[in-house]
Design a protein around this nucleic acid. Structure first.
Lengths: 338, 338
DNA sequence: TTGAAAGCGCTAACAC
DNA sequence: GTGTTAGCGCTTTCAA
């Protein structure tokens, strides 16, 4: 483990010159540069990032805080890692696991590491998190499941539009007897999906009766249970929207087990367009959430904030980006009018 | 953003005393300690981890390098994050995405951050990675898909045993006409699974003919394609082993689409016991890979290595732990003798 | 029990 | 174009 002083000594220059070669920030004589570069290559020297961070107050680090590790978040991690790498940063991943104490720790830890930005999804106690950040000039972006405060930039799917698209599909397809399996309604994005869905139907005079509304976690099992309750009721709807794909998969599986044919007897539409949608039979018609784009835009905001930080005059109100979903037609849905 | 000097000033002591209070390493007068702690609380002071790392040469950091973000690895990230947090460390996640250049960068970056340990799965060019580490005293653990060199500690599933267990199940169940959908045979863990499976069958005089052996990526689609080819051949085996669950799910889906009943006409067994195994119908009989235990043991090795480092006399040969799999019976398998 | 001083590895003024 | 100096925030001798 060799230091910049050692490299300087071996190439007969001062540490500052080595530093200049490394950063390319200042003019260095060609022959000197060459000599230094040779030594760097020979010795395999790598600057100590902790020392750099201490000086520069930038940890070359991006923090990502996710609420769980379901597929959506695994995908998020995937894209975030790629984006972070592209900007020469490392990615720290933290998962509060629903523990506000851990969440506070994680964020405090990120801050004391001089992260250059924090991306997070649904943090449990929005106000407190905002407090932690107040006064800190760390770019933050809320992604996917936004927090409730509006003073932090965010990038999210247009969840209202997602609900609307499914409702419009049902309307156009002649489905007037529909059901919905909602995500937890204390999560904002689930509320928005529900709102877009129900309001669009209501505008055409279609109501979803209480016994056709189900609420549960974003998990396969929630779909299974909704299907079971639906089957017991014996006035099956002709179309069901599940607010995430695993729930849609649960519906399909349980209907299959009960001998109810999809989509002949009941159409099922999912949400998010995750891998599971392609694995069920029939494959799930669903709404695509472009996580790659969401991530890219989030890092775009981060870069903007970092630049604005260099030039504090340029501080704007927080930006809130809405990414548009799109409908993916597969085999689990059919029009009644066909 | 307040420094230790500021805290010292406000509590009327020297920085060293604040440091002592923080670390609890030395005796501090109770009244002094109290005063310092009060100031820390009031100011919300947090030590700068970069500065600490620079002094102590420990980044309070664990690096995790994974080859992709399939469910297995998402789960790995989940457990690793939890373990890292338990030992007061942050987790940096890197994904080389098959690019040796990026892989080298990632590892070099981790090293220059003074990570306390690196956990990695299948790195593309084992020898080169080993080189990077030579001379560095950073604890390393290979996990899941081991690298080919033996000079680095590892924690892996006993993949040979996994193959053997499935073979024994088939033998006991009276299946003599079997097929296998193997993972990429250039990956060691896939080779080991195959070996355990075929050798156990062979010992009882059962051969798996070439047209009943398929090789493909660890993906759903590989199962779909294997099923399609099997269906074209029209001498269907009575049992098939898929070397990961998504492949098993692909088989089930395609057989379902073709009207072949599982398990009545053909039994299917998966591998790894991931979430997908519970989502298919019938649910997948599979072999459980205890990723939680694997992760726990990996961090155990890390702690051992860190301690051994403090006391260099204690350096042993690298440990290679094998974790035992277990069979999970569900509905996609049935005995022929029933 | 506490403080002063030195230094971890690096960069950025400031000289020359 | 290059070297010298100082200091980022912290911990750790060493003295007192």
């Amino acid at each position: 483990v060799i230091s910049i002083r050692e490299v300087a000594k071996r190439s007969g220059v001062s540490p500052s010159t080595v530093s200049r070669v490394l950063s390319g920030s200042a003019r260095v004589d060609d022959s000197t540069r060459k000599r230094v570069e040779d030594v760097i290559r020979e010795t395999g020297y790598r600057p100590n990032i902790n020392a750099q961070s201490l000086r520069s107050r930038s940890g070359q680090l991006v923090g990502l805080v996710v609420p769980d590790t379901h597929e959506t978040f695994a995908t998020l991690i995937h894209y975030a890692e790629a984006e972070a790498y592209r900007m020469g940063h490392a990615l720290i991943v933290g998962n509060p696991q629903g523990d506000p104490e851990k969440e506070r720790h994680l964020i405090a830890d990120l801050l004391s590491r001089n992260v250059d930005a924090i991306i997070f999804s649904r943090v449990s106690d929005a106000s407190h998190v905002a407090d932690t950040f107040r006064g800190r000039r760390v770019p933050i972006v809320a992604i996917d499941r936004g927090i409730e405060t509006e003073d932090v930039p965010s990038v999210q799917l247009n969840n209202v539009a997602a609900g609307r698209m499914v409702a419009e599909l049902f309307l156009k397809g002649g489905h007037s007897d529909v059901a919905v399996v909602m995500g937890p309604q204390n999560i904002r994005l689930a509320r928005e999906r529900t709102q877009g869905f129900l309001e669009t139907l209501a505008a055409e005079g279609i109501r979803v009766p209480a016994h056709h509304r189900f609420e549960g976690p974003f998990e396969f099992q929630a779909g299974v249970e909704a299907a079971q309750r639906l089957l017991r009721q014996d006035d099956l709807p002709t179309a069901i929207w599940a607010q995430c794909d695993p729930v849609g998969a649960g519906l399909i599986r349980e209907f299959h087990a009960a001998g109810v044919r999809v989509p002949e007897e009941v159409s099922i539409v999912g949400m998010d367009d995750t891998a599971i949608a392609l694995m069920v039979y029939p494959r799930l018609t669903t709404v695509h959430q472009p996580l790659d784009e969401i991530c890219r835009r989030a890092f775009g905001l981060i870069r903007t904030q970092i630049e604005a930080d260099h030039d504090p005059a340029e501080s704007h109100d927080p930006v809130h980006l809405r990414i548009e979903p799109s409908l993916i037609m597969r085999e689990s849905y059919r029009d009644l009018t066909e």
